[in-house]
Design a protein around this nucleic acid. Structure first.
Lengths: 143, 143
DNA sequence: ATTTGTGCAAATCGTTTGCATCTGA
DNA sequence: TCAGATGCAAACGATTTGCACAAAT
């Protein structure tokens, strides 16, 4: 059934993931997914992913990159990290964790392990429920 | 020296604050400061503040509102709250505290008291120092 | 064949900037 | 006076959208 097994070992899983998520595994989506997940946890902007795709000979339009990132996010494959205001980062690590934000460099990195302990999660106001707690530790070059 | 004392009781303090911060107390800056600080703690966007100013018969350009907000921030009179990505909020509460973010409404409110306890602040990577820890508790209408 | 995705370029939104004009000390 | 502030409109960067074309099932 698969005509080119050899070249599809990596694509195969991605294809299934997409299908399971209810997304048609198109060329662009498969390629983008591979770029996203083949290098460990990443925090990437739409623009950067677009550049990577083009560099990897997967010409895809910026608009499609945006669409894809949002679809992946809705499907739970990515998490949007809103830290800086002007740019949106997408985190390939969907599990519960927090971030360092390097000021000046505008870079986001995961805080390793279960290092942040919040001992008192404040109770939400009447009729509200907590969706998620985000912790951002802003750091800079030691002066 | 003050010709219209009666109308200046509120303006007086603001004027001093601005002067102390090294900012010339111009009409616009004084008015914006009053709008900002006369209603308790606020989390306001440039656009909204602009609308309020115009509504209060203090015609000021949006560009000036942006300039002013940034100058106030540099002077330590305001704190920038980056939560949402597409919009920047300025917090009139400069003290150490954290925020609820109401999804859907895109509203920011202070978490009252010293309710958030972070028991382990992760150590920053080599050569880096922690500037600040931001905690955002995302909440939504209970379903 | 039908449905869904893609590309392009134009549109939008928040924010910033350049520059001529005004204003506070 | 004159450095510093303001207003306007144009410039900007990130993101979105509309619509004709292409690809997946």
């Amino acid at each position: 059934m698969n005509k080119h097994m050899a070249t599809q070992s990596a694509s195969k899983d991605v294809t299934d993931i997409l299908r399971t998520a209810g997304l048609r595994p198109t060329r662009q989506r498969v390629s983008l997914a591979e770029l996203l997940y083949s290098k460990g946890d990443r925090h990437i902007s739409a623009e950067l992913l677009h550049e990577e795709a083009v560099a990897a000979d997967v010409p895809v339009s910026l608009a499609t990159v945006y669409n894809t990132l949002h679809q992946f996010t809705e499907a739970g494959l990515l998490r949007e990290v809103a830290i800086d205001g002007n740019k949106t980062y997408f985190d390939t690590n969907v599990s519960d964790h927090h971030h360092f934000f390097i000021e000046g460099e505008n870079r986001v990195i995961d805080i390793p392990g279960e290092v942040v302990g919040i001992d008192k999660i404040p109770s939400a106001p009447e009729g509200m429920e907590v969706v998620r707690v985000d912790v951002v530790v802003r750091i800079r070059e030691k002066s």
